[in-house]
């Protein structure tokens, strides 16, 4: 009787990047019910979908629901023994005290955490980022990614980072866009076809593969990091990672679709498919099998992550695209 129990509460919000219809469809399959029923649940959100289950079961549910794309909160209760004097209304469905926070679920991706208002459209193939910059604040954007903006936004190019920028190859420049005299809107289109992801940094650090950076707010520090001779050369991608730390919004893009992986033990990713990973993960570049497989399997070198953290991978790699397209490129004749 002493085991702690909790309620599984569907907050009604969606995980970043999730499409409402697809989430509802997935949840429908998950709970073997109709989409309409799920949609109805969403309109009453936040709503407890299961009450008084033990914590490990609840976590299992939470993982499954969040995987489907809906945000899910676990409300811990006192152990049932100590619960006697509590008002039974506390576990009513839906919970009345939370009604005030009721959020209209929308099909558009909105930030659920502090940060700028933004919208990602055109997902997943040609994602386009629209950010609302508050008055007199500055957004850092990858060079030549700006596609549209309000006329009151001023652009400045800074050679921040000094010489190190030149070595990263791709992101030679980051432009500063400042909303002068009032808030402004900016539309950002990355070069590669693919998806866009938003992360809110709260003192933590994310490493990006060097062409993944799209934009960040002013308090996010963006710097390139030398990977070391061996790691850099053999990863076949670039010598540098971009280190993003501090507090604020960070957006990065992928070539192809994006997959988020929670690394608990060891995980192996082809070097060309790495987009980003969190600090705290150790990584080594190594070959998959023996030397024979290094040269003949086509897998070459992989990155082996160990520790605990998150890795984002892209479902296509630029190097693979280049070697596929290369034979069709016209030959220059002199």
């Amino acid at each position: 009787m002493t085991t702690e129990t909790c309620d599984i509460v569907l907050s009604g919000k969606l995980v970043n990047g999730a499409d409402k219809d697809q989430v509802q469809q997935k949840l429908g399959t998950l709970f073997k019910t109709t989409e309409a029923k799920i949609a109805e649940l969403f309109t009453r959100a936040p709503v407890a979908i299961k009450k008084s289950v033990d914590v490990s079961t609840a976590q299992k549910y939470q993982r499954a629901i969040e995987k489907a794309g809906a945000e899910c909160v676990l409300k811990t209760q006192q152990p049932p023994v100590a619960k006697e004097q509590q008002e039974p209304s506390l576990s009513l469905v839906p919970m009345p005290e939370q009604q005030a926070e009721k959020v209209e679920p929308t099909g558009v991706q909105k930030p659920k955490k502090p940060g700028y208002d933004f919208e990602i459209t055109g997902q997943p193939d040609y994602s386009f980022l629209t950010v609302q910059i508050p008055a007199n604040e500055t957004l850092k954007v990858e060079a030549s990614a700006m596609a549209t903006m309000d006329t009151n936004i001023e652009m400045k190019t800074k050679l921040k980072g000094g010489f190190g920028r030149f070595l990263t190859g791709e992101s030679l420049f980051i432009n500063d866009f400042t909303a002068a005299n009032g808030p402004g809107e900016i539309g950002i289109a990355p070069g590669a076809p693919g998806d866009l992801l938003h992360q809110y940094l709260d003192g933590n650090t994310i490493y990006l593969q060097n062409s993944a950076y799209v934009a960040s707010t002013a308090d996010v520090t963006v710097e390139s990091k030398w990977q070391g001779m061996v790691k850099g050369f053999f990863s076949g991608e670039s010598l540098f990672l971009i280190r993003c730390s501090g507090k604020g919004d960070l957006w990065f893009n992928t070539y192809g679709a994006i997959i988020e992986i929670d690394v608990e033990d060891d995980y192996v990713v082809d070097t060309g498919n790495i987009v980003a990973f969190t600090e705290g993960l150790e990584y080594t570049i190594r070959k998959v099998g023996g030397y024979k497989s290094l040269f003949f399997s086509g897998e070459g070198l992989v990155c082996r992550f160990s520790g605990k953290g998150k890795v984002w991978i892209q479902t296509r790699s630029a190097a693979a695209f280049v070697s596929w397209a290369h034979w069709f490129r016209p030959v220059k004749r002199k």
Partner: peptide, 9 residues
């Protein structure tokens, strides 16, 4: 934009 992303590779 596509060319700018791809050509250095």
């Amino acid at each position: 934009g596509l060319a700018g992303w791809l050509n250095p590779k």
